[in-house]
Amino acid sequence: TLATPAVRRLAMENNIKLSEVVGSGKDGRILKEDILNYLEKQTG
């Protein structure tokens, strides 16, 4: 899974598996926005 260290840390802090997040960046890269959108969906 393609993600920057900052995105990986954000995911780890929120107990998110990067494999569950759909990346919207180039080549499927997971962006910070993708993590935040995933969190919004989870908290509903």
Rank of each mutant, 00 (worst) to 15 (best):
T1D: 13
T1N: 13
T1V: 14
L2E: 10
L2G: 01
L2D: 07
L2F: 08
L2W: 07
A3M: 09
A3C: 08
T4A: 05
T4V: 01
T4W: 01
T4L: 01
P5L: 10
P5M: 12
P5E: 15
A6N: 10
A6C: 08
A6F: 05
A6S: 12
A6G: 11
V7I: 09
V7Q: 02
R8Q: 13
R8D: 02
R9P: 00
R9N: 09
L10Q: 04
L10M: 14
L10C: 04
N15M: 06
N15Q: 09
N15K: 14
N15G: 02
I16G: 01
I16Q: 02
I16D: 01
I16M: 04
K17D: 14
L18K: 02
L18F: 15
L18H: 05
L18P: 04
L18Q: 02
S19K: 09
S19C: 10
E20S: 11
E20P: 00
E20M: 09
V21P: 03
V21L: 10
V21Q: 02
V21A: 03
V21N: 01
V21H: 02
V21E: 03
V22T: 15
V22Y: 09
G23A: 08
G23S: 06
G23W: 00
S24G: 05
G25F: 00
G25V: 01
G25N: 02
K26S: 10
K26E: 15
D27C: 05
D27S: 07
G28P: 01
G28T: 02
R29Q: 15
R29L: 08
R29E: 15
I30E: 03
I30Y: 10
I30P: 03
L31V: 10
L31W: 01
L31D: 05
L31K: 06
K32G: 09
K32V: 10
K32N: 07
E33V: 11
E33K: 13
E33H: 09
E33S: 14
D34T: 00
I35E: 06
I35G: 05
I35D: 03
I35T: 05
I35Y: 05
L36G: 09
L36E: 14
L36W: 09
N37C: 06
N37H: 10
Y38K: 15
Y38S: 10
L39C: 12
L39S: 13
L39G: 11
L39V: 14
E40A: 14
E40Q: 12
E40F: 07
E40L: 09
K41C: 12
K41E: 12
K41M: 11
Q42L: 08
Q42H: 14
T43N: 07
T43Q: 14
T43M: 09
T43W: 07
G44P: 03
G44L: 02
G44S: 13
